[in-house]
Write a protein that binds this DNA or RNA. Structure first.
Lengths: 312, 312
DNA sequence: TGTCTGACATCAATTCTGTCTATGACATGG
DNA sequence: CCATGTCATAGACAGAATTGATGTCAGACA
């Protein structure tokens, strides 16, 4: 009965050294034992031995040692998922405890694209401020490229917007998918008509959103030579909408942000709904280690809500 | 900068000894430092020191030491929640790894009350068998009291049924809430009529379910002196329904189990829907340490599904 | 091929840190 | 007011993890 290693051990959780699980995550993330050792300022044999101990307790090979690093076995992947959960809990501790202990002070700066419509986000801000009245919340509006820059520069903690690529320095939480539509004013000759051939619009005067234009739209415009004739320009969607409503030109707007005007009969969607360009709006933050407690709590709040919304 | 204790530590998760979190759970669950020490076969100062180390790292008092044990502070409660998450992950490891590594063999015996209708449960069994074809699944039917006994005796691993109390040796996962209704057959003079005064039924011949009768119903019957005249008896709901359908007597049945017969016009619900007795059906298992991998995996599967169902 | 490099494993010596024993302080209850 | 429970502190100790040196193996490159 000395052999208390295998998987049938009922008291596994109370016998293993939980630190081995943290080390395991480090090894996998680093991609190898030596690599992990360097990151942790330890000696390589130390990590090697730790992994061995863990595998002994578990009773299965977790990682295959290859000539250039390690790769997870099936068991390793299962292990990794659980270990990452543990890490996530551990990471939360300072923040959660700060919140429970004292009133957290600090500042959360948010940079956001204009005219975003999201109930979850609004509610998250409200509830966050209710729970943490001493945290100062600041919102700035800018074109989406500026949102990304500001985040990476550390000018703000949180971003909301679009991105064409995925940067390692940021984390992306999908918030909602937005659609855009091409609108014209009531005074426009095509008001009330659906346009099927985009070429027909080549000579129309366009209201553009400049730097704030989503790339999908830019491509679409290039393709059909739309907007060669620019009759108006505003980087803020709300202002662009004003220009379009007042007949300065036709132009693309997010459907939700135009809904009210459409209902009032002041804007007309010119394209068939199936052809509306779609893109994802993300909640953005710098990746882990550089977040302070205020930011982390805000992030928790929003992520929790948008996940709850997306789930079902 | 030697002082790297407080809450603002960005690398908290990678500096603390994760084992302290397990110990923390043990202390809270045991209700005191000494008590925890005894359970863990350690000396009291050892645990005391561990808690102190943890509190130092966290930078907050987690537990108030009182004359008879400890009690959690606000910070302690926040900590406890996260530590329990970690423990839960750790507990899962042997089972998850077993599943990932080999085809798990074993047996899961389920004792269940008759005529239970639950899609989630059915699907869970199907998907469980798909993922673990080598695990033998056995289902037995019995009155609810027998379900509880069988579980506690270790005759079966899983139970589904009702309980009037809460026993420490079992864990309860709410599965669905069932309603019962009083039915009569088509041949009955009251078929088609709603009974408002239960007293009127005092002289009716009843079909009873004996030991399988839910306590709420027993009370209801006693109160109105129903079922003094017993004209039929069957512990299996399906058989009781048969007796009622064929006019042996009137009797209570779960609404779902009678639905088909009602639709076919062979049974009639005599009471107003608002007065239908309601009770919870639980998924039952013995508490933690005595579960084998097969049982744990089955439990995971079912719980995951019924939680997903209940959540929204 | 041979050799070089980088990856991981093994081993003995050392350092460290958690544990134990013993003792003290403090509250509660009879 | 003493008995009995709680937890805290201090110093000795032992075991476990880390170190640093060395060994093995696979792939890359010439």
């Amino acid at each position: 009965m000395k052999d208390r290693s295998p998987l049938t051990d009922k008291k596994f959780a109370s016998r293993v050294d939980w630190n081995l699980m943290r080390t395991f995550v480090d090894i996998v993330r680093a991609g190898g034992i030596g690599a992990a050792a360097r990151q942790l300022n330890k000696q390589q044999p130390s990590i090697s031995a730790a992994l061995k101990r863990l595998e002994e307790h578990v009773g299965a090979t977790l990682l295959h040692r290859t000539a250039n690093g390690v790769e997870m076995t099936a068991a390793g992947k299962a292990m990794m998922a659980l270990c990452e959960d543990m890490l996530e809990s551990a990471r939360m501790m300072p923040h959660q405890i700060a919140q429970a202990t004292k009133r957290v002070e600090g500042i959360v700066r948010i940079q956001i694209v204009s005219a975003l419509i999201s109930n979850e986000f609004d509610e998250a801000i409200a509830s966050f401020h209710r729970r943490n009245p001493d945290i100062h919340v600041e919102i700035r509006v800018s074109p989406w490229r500026r949102v990304l820059d500001a985040l990476e520069q550390g000018e703000v903690e949180i971003g909301v917007g679009y991105d064409s690529a995925v940067r390692a320095s940021l984390v992306y939480e999908p918030m909602l998918s937005e659609r855009q539509q091409l609108y014209c004013a009531r005074s426009h000759p095509l008001f009330g008509y659906q346009v099927t051939r985009l070429n027909e619009l080549r000579d129309e005067g366009f209201v553009l959103t400049g730097e704030d234009e989503i790339e999908a739209i830019t491509h679409l415009r290039r393709r059909y030579r739309l907007g060669d004739k620019v009759s108006g320009m505003a980087e803020d969607i709300n202002e662009a909408r004003r220009l379009i409503v007042h007949g300065v030109g036709i132009g693309f707007l997010p459907v939700l942000s135009a809904r009210e005007e459409v209902k009032k009969g002041r804007l007309w969607p010119m394209l068939h709904a199936d052809t509306e360009p779609t893109y994802e709006i993300f909640l953005l933050a710098r990746s882990e280690p550089s977040r302070d407690t205020a930011t982390q709590l805000f992030l928790d709040e929003v992520v929790r809500r948008i996940r709850a919304q997306r789930g079902p």
